[in-house]
């Protein structure tokens, strides 16, 4: 057992516990805080996988902006502890859990059967090769169209979010 293995198991258990916390806690604010913890722990997993830039972006975008927005919106609503946090119906609930478990098992089985042919003969990503500079070069040469398209998407989203929240009944109703 080397250091990476131990770290992976600790982080994996933490991630599973926190993400279960997101789904299981009845109070939505606790859900959001658990989500933040999940994001931060995932960032550390990315550090393990030699992706420090992605880890940093995960911290900035997810933990620092998206989940903070969630928490802010929930504080604006001033939600109480919910009595009926989960959907009704024992049979459908069982069906949902069973189908989710079935899906998970299916994915795991597929992974177990197929990874050897995917990975065989390839090398592990090396730290020098994974520098942010190379990532940026790739992003701005091979993927430049997707990058531009994302820029337009973000502009659309900004305009859309403003127009949605300004309609009658929005936060700035006049």
């Amino acid at each position: 057992m080397d250091m990476t293995t131990i770290l992976f198991y600790i982080l994996a258990i933490a991630i599973v516990v926190f993400s279960l916390g997101v789904v299981m806690t009845a109070n939505p604010i606790f859900s959001a805080l658990f989500l933040a913890l999940t994001m931060v722990t995932l960032a550390f997993v990315y550090f393990l996988l030699n992706a420090p830039f992605i880890a940093g972006v995960q911290l900035i975008v997810y933990a620092g902006a998206v989940v903070v927005l969630f928490v802010m919106v929930m504080m604006l609503f001033d939600l109480k502890q919910e009595k009926e946090a989960f959907t009704k119906g024992k049979f459908t609930g069982f069906l949902k859990i069973a189908s989710a478990g079935w899906l998970c098992g299916l994915i795991a089985g597929a992974i177990y059967m197929s990874t050897e042919m995917v990975v065989s003969g390839n090398q592990i990503l090396d730290v020098n090769k994974a520098s942010t500079k190379i990532l940026a070069k790739e992003l701005f040469s091979n993927y430049v169209f997707a990058f531009e398209a994302l820029g337009i998407l973000l502009l659309l989203i900004a305009v859309g979010a403003v127009s949605i929240s300004r309609i009658k009944g929005g936060t700035h109703a006049k």
Partner: peptide, 13 residues
């Protein structure tokens, strides 16, 4: 090795 990205991410927490 990604100093400033890490600092921005952590301080946004």
């Amino acid at each position: 090795n990604v100093g400033i990205v890490f600092v921005l991410g952590i301080s946004s927490l």
